[in-house]
């Protein structure tokens, strides 16, 4: 488990750095709340309508919030050439990927853990169910699996803030579709069996893209 312990050292470093600056967490949480509030204006606040659009709002919020935080993931690694510093360390490139991925996963889950109860509160919806938590975790894992890879890629391009959404969004379309549909079912308190096919798609996406991103990550950071 040397591999995992090295990856966790990198996650620990990111968490420590984030605790200092609270750069990502604070801005992303505020951003998520703002999106929720703005959607409220866009759709009006009637209860029946809310139930209809809530899953969409939830996932648009998390998608944009996720993009904001993933965009930042590799910027500190570029500032003082730190990524090269990691590359000369006796760890594999893949450990860097897993470490950064776990860091982004942690941040995203914290943001969601803050945003979901507020969502419940503002929209008066039963958001806090086990089903919804499972959906959120599965979707977020897929997001950061692809996002971490593209973040490492985008940081080496000319217009990095612009690049990430354009690369990232088409790839995660199946994840967004599944998350929205599954959340819709979860909000109307359907059984697990009706959610199964959506959870299946998300699970498959997570596994496939974790493996593929793991395999190609080294090519993205090496010249």
């Amino acid at each position: 488990m040397r591999f995992l312990s090295k990856a966790l050292v990198i996650t620990w470093k990111d968490a420590l750095s984030e605790m200092r600056t609270k750069e990502v967490l604070s801005s992303v949480v505020v951003f998520a709340l703002l999106v929720i509030v703005i959607f409220n204006f866009a759709f009006g606040a009637s209860q029946e309508k809310m139930l209809l659009v809530a899953p969409g709002i939830l996932w648009v919020t998390f998608t944009f919030a996720g993009m904001l935080s993933i965009n930042r993931a590799f910027i500190p690694e570029k500032e003082q050439g730190c990524l090269e510093g990691l590359m000369v360390c006796p760890i594999s490139r893949e450990a860097i990927y897993i470490g950064k991925m776990l860091g982004s996963l942690l941040f995203m889950l914290i943001v969601e853990a803050i945003a979901l109860p507020i969502f419940t509160f503002l929209f008066n919806l039963p958001v806090l169910s086990l089903q919804l938590v499972v959906v959120t975790v599965l979707a977020t894992l897929g997001f950061v699996a692809v996002g971490t890879l593209f973040s490492a890629l985008a940081v080496n391009t000319k217009a990095r803030e612009m690049v990430l959404p354009i690369l990232f969004l088409p790839i995660v379309v199946p994840l967004i579709i599944s998350a929205v549909k599954a959340s819709e079912l979860a909000l109307s308190r359907e059984s697990w069996a009706t959610l199964a096919s959506w959870l299946g798609i998300m699970g498959a996406f997570d596994v496939i893209f974790l493996v593929v991103s793991f395999l190609v990550f080294a090519f993205v950071i090496e010249e």
């Binding site: 890879l149 790839i171 199946p174 798609i201």
Partner: peptide, 19 residues
């Protein structure tokens, strides 16, 4: 990298949009 991820994604996209 985009070519590889994109192609792997095609069947999943097909499945998700169909469902």
């Amino acid at each position: 990298v985009v070519g590889i991820l994109g192609f792997v994604d095609v069947p999943i996209i097909g499945l998700a949009t169909t469902l």
